[in-house]
Simulated scan of single mutants.
Amino acid sequence: MKFISPDIEAYCESHTDEESDLLKTLNRDTYANVLAPRMLSGQLQGRFLSMVSRMVRPERILEIGTYTGYSAICLAEGLVTGGKLITVDINEELENLANGYFSKSAFASQIDYRIGDALEIIPTLTETFDLIFIDADKINYLAYYQLCLPKVRSGGFIIADNVLWSGKVLEQKGKIDKDTQALLDFNRIVNEDRRVSNILLPIRDGLMVLQKL
């Protein structure tokens, strides 16, 4: 994931709003006690997600891939009064950890945390979403996108994480693994989809930001 200069990244972080005390604690807790802690959004990406959410002022947010709950709390910072964030994850082992931090946040009553397969849960959702964040298994990114786009309002946004995949999207053919190929396909299809306007940002591991037209 460290394909951006550490010095540049550190400079960006030092000129970005700090995390809240709760998010700092969750950050440390994740790195100390959870496998694959680099999956956590962290300060820079977290503040970006919060900024986007505060710009959109969503009534409904959907997150696919909760992990330990860091990004959900960041996204919830932009919810309007009475707004709701649904976050879905298949890993029940992290349920108690994430729920613990949700309950300590200012958004405890607004976060609807569901454990299960997102491919099965998304079709059951009847809400129209203003903002969707995809940060789950890469193999199914296209499937998530195809399921989510009809559920986003016109003018609404989808953000997909890890679309640069530690720079592996630049690898030569023959060396490409299934996850990398899935992301290459996702990036290409989104870029060619005339139903959306998109920009790929080299923030952390790459964020594809798209707006439904």
Rank of each mutant, 00 (worst) to 15 (best):
G116V: 07
N162I: 02
Y101K: 02
I115Q: 04
L119K: 14
I134G: 01
A106M: 07
Y141C: 02
D135F: 11
I139D: 12
S103F: 08
N140K: 12
I134F: 03
I158H: 11
I159S: 03
P123A: 08
F129Q: 05
A160H: 11
L149Y: 05
D161E: 10
V152N: 00
Q110L: 04
L149I: 15
A136W: 02
I111C: 11
E120A: 11
L119F: 04
W165M: 10
F129K: 06
T124E: 15
E127W: 01
R114P: 01
E120Q: 14
A106T: 06
L164A: 01
L149D: 03
L142W: 13
D117M: 13
Q146W: 06
Y145Q: 11
D135C: 09
F102H: 08
I139E: 13
A136I: 14
G100E: 10
E120N: 12
D135L: 11
K138G: 04
S105Y: 05
D137V: 11
S109Y: 05
I111R: 00
K151N: 06
P150I: 08
F107L: 09
R114K: 15
G155N: 08
I122H: 03
D135H: 13
I158C: 09
C148R: 07
I121Y: 00
L164W: 06
W165E: 00
Y101R: 08
D130E: 03
L125F: 06
L125W: 07
E127R: 00
D137A: 14
